[in-house]
Design a protein around this nucleic acid. Structure first.
Lengths: 240, 240
DNA sequence: TTTAGGTATGATGGCATACAAATTGTAAAT
DNA sequence: ATTTACAATTTGTATGCCATCATACCTAAA
């Protein structure tokens, strides 16, 4: 049956039509970033709709980050921030989170992070380097009793490396992963005595390789680091 | 002074507060997926707001894919589809698209796709295998004059491999990339005579490796495939 | 002249009401 | 028991009104 009859009554609501209309104008750059949209009243006339329908369309657009509505001032087309794009991803993963996803996070990190380290070595800027080096200092100074903070710094190191690739696809991929890591901690029994020094050692070697733009060494060190790290993870993983 | 006076004028609008409120309920699974929300009238009473403000909050939520609003029926909490999560990514990359991004796509594919092939070899289901094999047949049958279709099938092959990883992070990463590939064609001068057979040969070898769950071979073949492919890309890339 | 303060204007935010349109359930009719 | 018709419920759209905020302009005092 599905092959024969296709949907006809896609009763697209009026506000949805308006939304698509404006979205198309933005996609086609007829409304460039920073452009001020006509006022609500004017748009009402242009589309020949009520203010209610129009406003609901505008709410949708602003919820998706395409426009910014400033009370008393007007509406402008905004550059979609990477944060906006990622936020819906975060929500998606957040609701999907379970032990299965944890395994897939580990799988992903083992597979991708060495490549990411390599890419970071090739593309990193001076600022990226500073961020990573600052993280090393922070890690070294961190009170070893504060396992929460220690773990957070650790996670941020890997995110800094991902950012150092300067590749938006890599960053978009790893940001949500990073946001899930704190939740993963609840599934791990404990931190291991003496792990900190080992972790810091690896981090330093990785940064050194990235500093010298030695892609292969960055790759190898990251791989060794994660292999060891994930062994610990698996050992203390709460199998239910 | 900052200690004494805290901000009052949180520019957060009423409908945004309502939005966050409902979103929180959904995140905390107090409103499980499939649950029917109270009617607008009831929600208005519960939040003690007008229907306008409430509806604008609901519009926002539906635009983000959290709820589905059915006219005449009611509103239900929906499982956020991966498509929803990806759609905002697509828009983000779409507006960001330029030659710079093309280079980053190539960089990403070279770095990740071999790893993806490895992962696919380990995780692929029978259905994944069928999809990839069907793609091979389609590619072989494709009229060589139809370069548009040929290129499309090629792209879909790589997406099928990504899907075969069964890892949502990988799929979310590669789906938007796949959506950008057609636009990249406009930056390439032409297809190369005889490339089709070579491409098909690589694809077959990759599928064979994945079929036999030979991760290392899948990795190597994909790497060799992309190395060659990208050489052609770079050669015919429209440097402006 | 400069500047603090007032004011007019136009923008969005929100409220209340009314009606249209779609869906669903129910009860009557066959 | 099935069908039909109708009523109730729910969302969609329209309209009018006022509140609140942002901005530009004007005015009067230093």
């Amino acid at each position: 049956m599905e092959d024969i009859f296709q949907k006809i009554g896609t009763t697209q609501t009026l506000s949805q039509k308006i939304e698509r209309n404006i979205e198309r104008a933005i996609r086609e750059k007829k409304l460039p970033i920073g452009a001020k949209l006509p006022s609500e009243r004017e748009l009402c006339e242009m589309f020949a709709v009520s203010r209610t329908a129009l406003r609901e369309a505008l709410r949708r657009l602003s919820a998706r980050g395409l426009i910014e509505i400033r009370k008393g001032s007007g509406m402008v087309v905004t550059k979609i921030d990477m944060k906006d794009a990622i936020s819906s991803l975060n929500l998606y993963y957040d609701l999907k989170f379970d032990e299965n996803l944890i395994g897939q996070i580990i799988e992903l990190r083992l597979a991708f992070e060495p490549e990411i380290a390599k890419m970071a070595a090739l593309n990193r800027t001076e600022e990226d380097l500073k961020n990573m080096e600052a993280n090393l200092v922070e890690f070294a100074k961190c009170n070893p009793d504060n396992t929460q903070l220690e773990s957070d710094i650790d996670n941020r190191f890997h995110l800094a490396v991902a950012r150092a690739t300067e590749n938006p696809f890599v960053i978009v991929t790893m940001e949500p992963v990073h946001n899930l890591l704190p939740r993963m901690r609840n599934f791990i029994y404990a931190n291991i005595e003496g792990e900190k020094e080992i972790t810091l050692g690896y981090h330093k070697e990785i940064v050194n390789a990235i500093r010298e733009r030695d892609a292969e060494r960055a790759y190898d060190k990251m791989q060794a680091h994660l292999d060891r790290n994930m062994q610990v993870y698996n050992k203390f993983f709460k199998h239910s």
